[in-house]
Write a protein that binds this DNA or RNA. Structure first.
Length: 488
RNA sequence: GUCCCCAUCGUCUAGAGGUUAGGACAGCGGGUUUUCAUCCCGCCAACAGGAGUUCGAUUCUCCUUGGGGAUACCA
């Protein structure tokens, strides 16, 4: 069987971790089986739709680095791939169900529904949801009222008795008593647009989708989707319900857990490789004894059987670790290009960096690569390479071991030695400093500390000699001089 | 409330009747190191509980408990 899967986001918000995970799993399944991955825009909620979200969708996936074989932008044999452009189709199919007696017009207004809900909440009755008030209306009369312009929705008739069963490739057989299925869900809204339920069944069928892979939150609507397929006389696709992604508190991942929009991760300086690698492993495993999987390997290794049933908690710390791993795997030039925008944002380099800036930043990469957790750490970590740090407070020079006078003495010695050293010869430079430390009866680290603070503005910094080699001995000397003066 | 799904270290997971229950992140402790980081080594840490089935259950069944999800003219 030719596998065809789809990612069907609703452009009513920014692309977030949960939906991207669904997209990724669908994509990997398609790739692993030589199938087709389809993007379909489910823009049927006209009240929440925004073109900005469509743009965000495209930006997100371009950044993440995986793409669809068919979709609104690339086209395909089942176009259009935007549901608002398929409006007529849903109308026709809804009519089909009404005419077949599988669905009916409902004229209940918002007020009636709200009252119903209030009454149900107040009572101890187990009944919840629509009371099927219009189900018994005469179809002909109903049709006349609609023809006369009365507002109506179309509802699906859920059988009053019996049960509906389906097979899920991860969860196995699932059976629902029809009395527990949502009572007659709306298929066509009063604005004429379909609900997700109608649109997704019609399109999945028309687009020959073979596997529907979506989060477990959809399980409760699966039974009436099955009812709908039967009403149309269609063969339903394979159902695959993916484990939910939870926040650290065990609830469905949402904004209140921190960053959840892919855009936020991008702005924080996460690498798409890290995000993809990490997210692919939420509720899914690939191969034992290994943690780092490039996208190509995920595509090759993915198996439905390796999908988990239990929900997974999103662990920001582990994602951070992945990010560090992928940063360290970058070549200097590539990392430089990734870091440049972050430096530009802080004004350390021009928006369009000069060749000199580019090569300067390139040569600084070895100093920061293994220290960066996020690309966004770069400006703070590298600022001293671009400009003299503010004069450090005297306490910065003084440690448990060094008092002010001793710190000043070591700083002076360290600075003095600088001009005598060839900074392009690191081992030799270090040897000279070690000898100097010994001569002064100090530890090597103690000799380095005050100089480090003077030059970098901090007790913690990338390697000192390499840093000085980058900014130049003159600049380092100038900073040391100022610091020395401040120490009196 | 009702229905549904789920259940191995704190977290992500491996395990598919017999294992010292493995790995990763985090945590803790060491080592390397010019600070930090990287890197290396070690430690801590789990089969929710109870009945069955079986010679033998983490693994199969049932119950309990716990967690999550759904209960919209949103997806």
């Amino acid at each position: 069987m030719q596998v065809r899967v789809r990612y069907a986001p609703s452009p009513t918000g920014l692309q977030h971790i949960g939906s991207v995970r669904t997209a990724l799993i669908n994509y990997l399944f398609a790739r692993a089986n030589g199938g087709t991955f389809v993007l379909r825009l489910e823009d049927t909620d006209r009240t929440r739709f925004s073109e900005d979200y469509v743009k965000n969708l495209y930006d997100t996936f371009e950044w993440l680095g995986f793409y669809w074989d068919e979709g609104p932008d690339v086209g395909g044999p089942y176009a259009p791939y935007i549901q608002s452009e398929r409006f007529q189709l849903y109308q026709e199919h809804a009519m089909r169900l009404v005419e077949a007696g599988a669905a009916y017009y409902c004229f209940c207004g918002e007020e009636r529904l709200a009252g119903l809900r209030a009454a149900q909440e107040g009572s101890d009755s187990a009944d919840l949801g629509y009371d099927r008030h219009c189900r018994g209306l005469d179809p002909r009369e109903a049709a006349d009222r609609v023809a006369a312009g009365e507002k109506a929705v179309v509802r699906l008739k859920i059988p009053l008795e019996g049960s509906t069963k389906f097979h899920d490739l991860v969860l196995g057989d699932i059976e629902w008593k029809n009395e527990d299925v949502s009572p007659d869900p709306v298929l066509l809204k009063s604005d004429g647009f379909p609900t997700y339920h109608l649109a997704n069944i019609v399109d999945d069928h028309l687009m020959r989708i073979t596997h529907v892979m979506r989060a477990q939150e959809w399980i409760p609507s699966a039974p009436f989707h099955i009812v709908m397929y039967a009403a149309f006389g269609w063969e339903p696709p394979q159902l695959v319900h993916l484990p939910m992604v939870l926040g650290p508190d065990g609830h469905k991942l949402s904004k209140r857990h921190g960053a959840t929009a892919v855009d936020e991760f991008r702005k924080k300086g996460y690498l798409p490789e890290a995000l993809v690698n990490y997210v692919s492993h939420l509720g899914c495993s690939f191969e034992e004894g290994r943690d780092l999987f490039p996208l190509a390997d995920l595509e090759r290794l993915f198996k439905i059987e390796r999908l988990n049933k239990a929900p997974a908690v999103f662990d920001y710390q582990k994602l951070e670790w992945y990010n560090g791993q992928y940063i360290r795997m970058k070549g200097d030039a590539e990392l430089r290009d990734l870091v440049l925008p972050f430096l530009a944002q802080e004004g350390l380099v021009a928006e369009a960096p000069s060749e000199a800036q580019r090569s300067f930043v390139l040569s600084a990469m070895p100093l920061v690569k293994e220290r960066l957790k996020f690309l966004s750490d770069a400006p703070a970590m590298m600022r001293y390479l671009f400009e003299a740090p503010p004069l450090p407070a005297a306490e910065e020079f003084i440690s448990k071991k060094l008092d002010k006078a001793r710190a000043a003495e070591l700083l002076a010695a360290g600075a003095a030695l600088l001009s005598a050293c060839d900074l392009s010869d690191l081992p030799a430079t270090e040897a000279r400093y070690r000898a100097e430390a010994e001569r002064l009866g100090a530890k090597f680290g103690d000799l380095m500390a005050p100089l480090r603070v003077a030059v970098t503005g901090s007790r913690v910094s990338p390697p000192l000699f390499e840093s000085i080699a980058l900014i130049g001995a003159d600049e380092a000397l100038a900073r040391a001089g100022k610091a020395l003066a401040s120490l009196g």
